[in-house]
């Protein structure tokens, strides 16, 4: 196993939010991620795109140290994940929890503060105010005292987002935050994400919709067990790259969507040039 390279005495060195070196993750015998190298610059909003089973969620879970890593290493702000836990916010998939759980929306958001509090300390009034403010940011404050099963899918996703906001992190990992939400919620969420990016936060978002990906993200990570391509959206979002990532599985519908998206990107560049 490779040992992390620890910088020697260069305290002034600025660490990138996420650096992955030769990462391999395997479920029993089958590798899911293989030889991943990645360096995500600060303030970027990365869309993780790839076909089903490409290991998108696995990558997020591996970064979060929720899965055993077969080889390679991951550093978050220059340290192992455990050491920079408080600087990472997380939005899991909506199906990963039981929505009948006896908590209300505010309780869930308040959980975002717990990591910061550490053991034995109870959430203060300030924590509650912050949680409430986060709910307000996602426009869910009228539902603060609702039990979470009485919220719609999009509202539940907003509560999860509010919880991540309450973590006040520098790096956000989001696992399909747009899955099963209505168009209005999707627009609201992307607005909040852009806002976070403008504050200099780094976002890594698993996304399954090729048509919207180039609109939403300034960087794309094309994943299919390995890194197919990573970089600025206009460089990565090419037909060849997508064909490699999706193999023959790129359906006609996605192809049409893709060509449309490419045209749009080209249009953007032309505009830039003309400016």
């Amino acid at each position: 196993m490779a040992t992390p390279v620890i910088s020697t005495g260069q305290s002034s060195k600025v660490f990138v939010p996420l650096e992955i070196h030769d990462l391999t993750v395997a479920y029993s015998k089958r590798p899911v991620l293989y030889g991943i190298d990645l360096e995500v610059p600060q303030g970027s909003m990365v869309g993780v795109v790839g076909p089903n089973g490409a290991g998108k969620s696995t990558l997020i879970r591996a970064i979060m140290d929720l899965l055993p890593v077969a080889s390679g290493w991951i550093q978050v702000f220059g340290k192992p994940f455990k050491k920079s836990v408080t600087r990472v916010g997380y939005v899991p998939q909506r199906e990963s929890v039981d929505w009948d759980f006896p908590v209300n929306a505010l309780d869930v958001v308040l959980m975002g503060r717990y990591g910061r509090l550490g053991p034995l300390r109870r959430p203060s009034k300030i924590d509650k105010e912050i949680a409430m403010a986060c709910l307000e940011k996602v426009k869910m404050h009228p539902y603060a005292t609702r039990q979470i099963s009485n919220l719609s899918g999009g509202q539940q996703q907003r509560v999860f987002l509010a919880r991540a906001l309450a973590q006040e992190s520098d790096l956000y990992l989001m696992d399909e935050p747009f899955a099963g939400v209505d168009a209005a919620t999707e627009a609201a969420i992307i607005e909040i994400l852009r806002d976070l990016q403008n504050q200099g936060k780094t976002l890594i978002v698993v996304h399954h919709d090729l048509t919207t990906a180039p609109d939403y993200f300034d960087r794309i990570l094309l994943l299919n067990m390995r890194v197919v391509a990573f970089g600025l959206t206009k460089d990565v979002f090419t037909f060849e790259n997508l064909q490699t990532a999706y193999g023959g599985r790129l359906s006609i519908l996605s192809e049409v969507a893709l060509s449309r998206a490419q045209k749009k990107l080209e249009g953007d560049t032309h505009e830039n040039i003309s400016e």
């Binding site: 391999t24 395997a26 015998k29 089958r30 590798p31 293989y34 077969a70 080889s71 067990m225």
Partner: peptide, 14 residues
């Protein structure tokens, strides 16, 4: 036993 040879096996399965 498999685990101790896992790296090689992984490469081949890839």
């Amino acid at each position: 036993v498999f685990k101790s040879h896992s790296k090689g096996a992984r490469t081949s399965s890839i």
